[in-house]
Nucleic acid binder design. Structure first.
Length: 319
RNA sequence: GGUGCCAUAGCCAAGAGGUAAGGCGCGGGUCUGCAACACCCUUAUCCCCGGUUCAAAUCCGGGUGGCACCU
């Protein structure tokens, strides 16, 4: 049974920890191809702010789900999952090893455990009416409605988290089932893959310092011009793509919300917060393999060697 | 040397007798169709000593430290 599971390597970690270069090196060593699990790098024209892998950095290693959508398009987990599964399948077919690389934990989870998102979901009128209700009647009202149909979800989701309350109500509305039960069932799932889930990590202080440096570098590389161009191309603050770090702050600056200096300060701060949240996410994921850079003396050779050992132990690569 | 002002959490900062707002930062957490999103939790006994009072961060006295002005 174990033997029938197909291989999947995951390389993730907080932003700015060094996933990109490490993953390319790993791919070269094990004959892997990279599927990006990054909610922002999928968009074309968002290069600097998303710290997108460059052509040179790829070193000939195939990358998927990079530059596949326009920033004006809606991209989300369901689309991600569908495409990622397709690419992973294709890589398997040609005998390669798919490496899922990126910092969007939710996306990784979606393909690793093949979470079921199937529903109709085309009709948005219901959620819009709920949105309106939240505005007129208050968030507590909405939360009470949820409690009536799905008390477990009401307990788990804070009333202020309108977005999630609406989703839970919508799920019940569309399927007649409680999302809390659905989630619980999905949680029990075993991964269909023979996987190795690497989480690259570093000391918090070093991570934060790198984040600050990287933001400064982005500014020097012309992040502001990149955002100006996107804005000129019709991108607005409400779009999912423009909620990415670096984009929202520059857009706010261009809208006169605050000074450029302040925008940079906020961007750095929010990026640090993001890294912290990512770590929280990975901490509660099961079966992750923490790869602390400090334990390998920051030597990528040693890190890669360790990863290869793990992969051969798991039978993902031949020893 | 004198006079005045100030001294509250890592930072900013309310509070002027009734048992310490808030913001930021830090830290922790939630997350199963927007996830670089959205949301939650946590963080002081008020510079020190003494006094008044049932009760003091808040009043009085004395220290210490800082700021301003004067000689």
């Amino acid at each position: 049974m174990e033997q029938k599971k197909l291989p999947l390597v995951i390389v993730t970690g907080p932003t700015a920890v060094g996933k990109t270069s490490l993953s390319v090196e790993l791919a070269k060593r094990i004959g892997g191809e990279i599927v990006s699990a990054d909610s922002m790098q999928v968009y074309r024209g968002m290069d600097i702010g998303s710290a997108k892998v460059t052509k040179e950095e790829m070193q000939g290693v195939p990358h998927y789900l990079i530059d596949e959508f326009d920033p004006t398009e809606e991209f989300h987990v369901v689309k991600f999952q569908k495409l990622a599964k397709r690419y992973i399948h294709e890589i398997h077919c040609r005998g390669g090893i798919p490496i899922l690389v990126g910092g969007t934990g939710f996306y990784i989870q979606a393909v690793l455990y093949d979470i079921d998102f199937t529903e109709n979901g085309e009709d948005s009128s219901y959620r819009e009416s709920l949105q309106r209700l939240a505005e007129t009647e208050g968030v507590e009202k909405l939360h009470e409605m949820l409690r009536e149909v799905d008390p477990a979800s009401a307990d788990a989701i804070h009333a202020n988290n309108v977005k999630r309350v609406i989703r839970a109500l919508e799920f019940y509305h569309e399927t007649g089932q409680r999302i809390s039960e659905h989630n619980e069932a999905e949680r029990q799932k075993e991964s269909p893959y023979n996987f190795a889930y690497f989480v690259l990590n570093d000391e918090r202080e070093r991570l934060y310092r790198n984040i600050d440096l990287r933001v400064d570098a982005m500014m020097e590389q012309g992040l502001l011009d990149e955002v100006r161009a996107l804005k000129a191309a019709g991108c607005t603050r409400e779009m999912v793509s423009m909620q990415g770090l670096g984009y929202k702050e520059m857009l706010d600056y261009l809208a006169g919300e605050y000074s450029l200096e302040e925008a940079v300060r906020v961007l750095k701060r929010d990026t640090r917060h993001f890294a912290k949240r990512q770590l929280t996410w990975f901490r509660r994921e099961r079966d992750v393999i923490w790869v602390d850079k400090g334990q390998f003396a920051y030597d990528s050779e040693r890190i890669l060697g360790y990863m290869e050992d793990v992969l051969s132990e798991k039978g993902i690569v031949q020893g």
